[in-house]
């Protein structure tokens, strides 16, 4: 469920995602996610276990070592944030095209 956070003048979309592909966010999905996020103007971050990283950097995503069923939080802030969240969620729900 998306949640709109209002912080004085900052509006950010925040969404929780559970990793559902069995190999987790390994190299190829990290690459696909970073590529997708890089298409948008919005700033996109991932939070996991107290760490917050830039979702446009493949190596930063990879180093979260997000395994199957782990929970991450996506934070999106910018003029194209709605479409960005939609496409990011779709990538995760499609399991990065790895599993049918």
């Amino acid at each position: 469920m998306d949640e709109i956070i209002l912080l004085i003048s900052i509006i950010m979309i925040k969404t929780q995602i559970t990793i559902s592909n069995t190999l987790g966010l390994h190299a190829r999905p990290s690459m696909k996610l970073a590529e997708l996020c890089s298409k948008f103007n919005a700033e996109i971050y991932i939070k996991k276990d107290g760490k917050k990283i830039n979702a446009k950097n493949m190596m930063d995503i990879l180093m979260l070592a997000s395994g199957y069923r782990s929970q991450i939080e996506i934070l999106v802030d910018g003029d194209d944030e709605k479409i960005a969240v939609k496409e990011i969620k779709s990538l995760f729900s499609d399991r990065f095209g790895e599993e049918s």
Binding site: A27, A34, M58
Partner: peptide, 10 residues
């Protein structure tokens, strides 16, 4: 490989 991946993606 991480060094190379960082180089190739930035």
């Amino acid at each position: 490989l991480p060094m190379l991946m960082q180089a190739l993606t930035s």
